[in-house]
């Protein structure tokens, strides 16, 4: 078991959005989160990545194991593709960025400034960053936004390779990617008036 979540409640802006959520993700497994807009997918993923504290409950196995990718890719427009990727590799203590460049077909763009890339190319670079982190758990928030068909194939190949190597993936997405994955609909755990105990305004009622 790589990542275990037990009875987790998460809040956005002091208001609980999900309560009592529990699940496991095994090594080599992928989990796709589903739910309507505003269900709390992004909040859950940010909590799993350690960017915000959970309201209650436990997350085991996430600390220093997680590579996070969300709507913005953390790219500097005045650095080249290679420089951007080399920087993130160095931050995560890795050196070799060639496999990541190859996996997302970025070799031709190597010396282009990231600011001159199209939205899809930027996203490919953002996803290539996952490969240079060397982290086992990928937490992805809408990873396929602005990718074309071919790029989605590249992404699926990269995820499959990551899973085959014993990594795991948790992602929120609206499309059905061609990978083996469990699907978890988080709507049943949405916080309701009855279960919203723990809101920061709770004490004032």
């Amino acid at each position: 078991m790589v990542l275990t979540v037990h009875d987790l409640s998460v809040a956005r802006g002091g208001v609980p959005v999900l309560t009592g959520l529990s699940f496991d993700v095994e090594a080599g497994c992928a989990l796709i989160l589903r739910g309507p807009n505003g269900a709390g997918k992004t909040t859950l993923l940010r909590t799993l990545a350690g960017l915000q504290p959970p309201l209650s409950g436990e997350i085991a196995g996430a600390e220093d194991q997680v590579a996070y990718a969300a709507h913005s890719d953390g790219l500097k427009s005045m650095l080249t593709v290679r420089e951007n990727l080399t920087f993130w590799a160095a931050v995560f203590g890795q050196r070799d960025i060639t496999p990541a460049m190859t996996a997302f077909n970025l070799e031709d763009l190597e010396e282009r400034l990231a600011g001159t890339l199209s939205a899809g190319q930027k996203r490919r670079l953002g996803l290539a960053r996952l490969l240079v982190t060397g982290r086992p758990v990928w937490i992805l928030d809408e990873p396929t936004v602005s990718l074309d068909q071919d790029a989605v194939r590249l992404f699926e190949t990269a995820v499959t390779a990551h899973l085959a190597g014993g990594g795991s993936v948790i992602m929120a997405t609206h499309i059905a990617p061609g990978i083996d994955a469990q699907v978890l609909d988080i709507s049943p755990w949405r916080a309701t008036a009855a279960t919203r105990a723990g809101a920061s305004d709770e004490a004032f009622l």
Binding site: A49, G50, L51, D64, V66, A67, Y68, A70, H71, S72, D73, G74, L75, K76, S77, W88, V91, F92, G93, R129, T133
Partner: peptide, 14 residues
């Protein structure tokens, strides 16, 4: 913060 680097730095080993 705008380009998301801070989020990524916060999840990095640094």
């Amino acid at each position: 913060l705008e380009d998301g680097s801070l989020d990524l730095l916060a999840t990095s080993p640094l």
